[in-house]
Amino acid sequence: MGEQRKGVVALAVACVVWGLSPLYYKLLAAVPPLEVLSHRTLWSLALFGLILLGQGRLREVPQLLRSHGGGVALAAVLISANWFLFILSVQIGLTVQASLGYYIFPLVAVLLGVLAFGERLNRWQGLAVSLAAAAVLVLTFGLGVAPWVALALATTFGLYGLIKKRLVAGPVVSVTAEVLVLAPLAVVWLAGVHGGLFSEFSRAGGWFGHSLGTSLLLAFSGVMTAGPLILFTYASQRVTMATVGLVQYLNPTLQFLCATLVFAEPFSRWHGIAFGLIWAALAIYSWQALVQDRAARSRNSRPGTSATAVK
């Protein structure tokens, strides 16, 4: 199997794990989301720390914190908010909205690029963003309330991506630094929960240790976080960004199927119209990404044209 094919397989597996993760978090529906988030933070830190220790790269984490502490802290706040909202959406029956959020994320990222970096949209990209905005308006009008979970998930992940572009560090190192920043809050929260200080937010004594099954599920949250990210990192080094963009739609598609087919969440005609608009927007966006990727490769393959010259 060639390197590119290995990359596609790794990317597909990562997206399938992310897409089916609602099934995992539904098993933890009885555990308050802040408690699940705290365990996810600490177990992820332990696993990422072991990986970096094995690679001899653990020293890169404090180096990143010294050089970009503010950016890491902001990224940590954004990704923890994103994780919390996703866990909460599954627990309260809003997985359809969560899938919508990850569908519109690429379009939100394009819009943030315009606002933050002054990037320009061509007419097709502008049409795609307009269709996404129309989908949000349709849901707001049809359901009488804005899809706040979807918007918050897409926005926090989009802003997280903006921050990450400014951090000169690999994904495993940067995420390890982020969960390290969050770890003291997670420890305080779990100590309070298990000590009965936050009994109004959780069962007195906390859920870890309550049963073997629940404890194992909470500990496995580290694998659920680290595994797909490592696969995604491996894949992104071997496949084109256009391929990454297309295969990533497996994630929200599987989330959508979990929500409608497994959880039997409501899916009204307004949802149907909105998702139709989103899928049309993503088709346009993906087509444009493929066209731009093909044009870039064509330029780079011209005789006498090097990557350096193009840059």
Rank of each mutant, 00 (worst) to 15 (best):
E3Y: 06
Q4E: 15
Q4T: 13
R5V: 13
G7I: 09
V8C: 03
V9H: 05
L11S: 13
L11D: 02
V13Y: 06
V17L: 14
G19E: 10
Y24G: 06
P32C: 13
P33H: 08
P33F: 08
E35L: 04
V36T: 14
W43P: 00
L45R: 11
A46L: 15
L47C: 07
F48C: 10
G49L: 11
L50M: 14
I51Q: 01
L52I: 06
Q55A: 13
E60V: 00
V61H: 03
Q63I: 03
L64W: 04
R66Q: 11
H68W: 05
G70P: 00
A73E: 02
A73W: 09
A75F: 12
I79P: 00
I79M: 14
N82D: 10
F84E: 01
F86M: 05
F86V: 02
S89P: 07
S89K: 04
I92K: 06
L94F: 11
G101W: 10
Y103R: 08
I104G: 08
I104F: 08
P106W: 12
L111S: 15
V114R: 13
L115C: 12
R120L: 11
Q125K: 14
Q125R: 15
G126F: 11
V129G: 09
A135M: 08
V138P: 01
T140G: 12
G142D: 11
G144T: 00
V145S: 12
A146Y: 00
A150E: 10
L151D: 03
L151T: 04
T155P: 02
T156P: 04
T156W: 09
F157A: 06
G158P: 03
L159A: 10
G161M: 06
R166Y: 04
R166Q: 13
A169S: 13
V173D: 03
V173L: 03
S174M: 13
L185A: 14
A186F: 08
W189F: 14
G192L: 12
V193Y: 01
H194V: 02
H194S: 11
G196H: 09
L197M: 14
F198R: 03
S199C: 11
F201L: 15
R203K: 12
A204P: 15
G213T: 09
S215V: 03
S215T: 10
F220Q: 01
S221N: 15
V223W: 07
G227E: 03
P228D: 01
P228Y: 02
L229F: 05
L231M: 09
Y234R: 12
A235W: 09
V239Y: 07
M241E: 04
M241W: 00
A242P: 00
A242Q: 09
Y249K: 06
N251C: 11
T260H: 01
T260V: 15
F263E: 05
S268Q: 05
R269D: 02
W270N: 09
W270R: 00
W270L: 01
H271E: 12
L277T: 08
W279N: 01
W279S: 06
W279M: 13
L282N: 02
I284E: 05
S286D: 04
W287K: 03
W287H: 13
Q288T: 08
D293M: 04
R294M: 07
A296T: 10
R297C: 04
R297I: 06
R302C: 11
T308V: 14
A309G: 15
K311S: 15
